[in-house]
């Protein structure tokens, strides 16, 4: 039950993008930093990546869901809660517990993970442009949920010895919700989201089976 029309959704996106400008640039800079750190890992890089992802999820929970979308969508406060929870989980796993390292390796999860990260930063906006949702209506990486979730799934595929399953739950839930948006709100480019979700969950399970 979506309480708003596509017209209203995209109008609000325009308002949101204008209101947070130029936060989009900062988000992209952070995204590129994560990409570089993932390819050239160091002793501290996993903690930095975890902290950056946590900040982006927190932003999405508070600014996007709570402040901008809650007024038109009664489900948005619940989404905000889940996004904030994911931010805390990312901090806990990568900054406090530090029991997983993030680093690219030339195996199936590694290549898929890196591809998903690049898709989130570059492929998804291109698709959105083709679907006529470019410019001010764009869901920009880091400040809008869908590309942020695709990117996070990519990063989690680079986690060694394996991706913490608890960090997969919220991104996968959002993959389902985003998948529904393809039809319910008419956002064809969001089809990337359920595809990323299915790929990520299968690769992580395959990876865990291999290590068992």
């Amino acid at each position: 039950m979506i309480p708003f029309s596509p017209e209203v959704f995209f109008a609000l996106f325009e308002e949101y993008n204008l209101a947070i400008w130029p936060a989009q640039f900062a988000a992209y800079a952070l995204g590129l930093l994560v990409l570089i750190l993932a390819v050239r890992p160091s002793r501290v890089s996993s903690g930095v990546i975890g902290a950056i992802l946590a900040a982006l999820w927190m932003w999405n929970g508070v600014a996007y869901h709570w402040f901008f979308f809650a007024p038109i969508n009664f489900s948005a406060p619940v989404f905000a809660g889940f996004f904030i929870l994911q931010a805390l989980l990312l901090l806990w796993k990568f900054v406090i517990q530090r029991d997983a390292m993030i680093g690219f390796r030339r195996d199936a999860p590694g290549i898929t993970g890196l591809t998903l990260m690049i898709v989130a930063l570059a492929g998804y906006p291109l698709l959105a442009n083709v679907a006529d949702h470019g410019g001010l209506q764009s869901a920009v990486f880091g400040v809008a949920p869908t590309p942020t979730v695709i990117f996070t799934l990519g990063v989690l595929l680079l986690a060694r010895p394996r991706a913490p399953l608890v960090l997969m739950i919220v991104p996968l839930l959002w993959s389902v919700i985003g998948g529904l948006a393809v039809w319910l709100v008419g956002i064809p480019e969001d089809v990337v989201l359920p595809v990323a979700g299915v790929l990520a969950v299968n690769l992580v399970l395959w990876q865990r089976r291999g290590q068992a």
Binding site: I2, F4, V8, A11, E15
Partner: peptide
């Protein structure tokens, strides 16, 4: 007014 009047802050809408 379900959906139809839920237009958010947009002045145009």
């Amino acid at each position: 007014t379900w959906i139809t009047f839920n237009v958010g802050p947009s002045r145009k809408l």
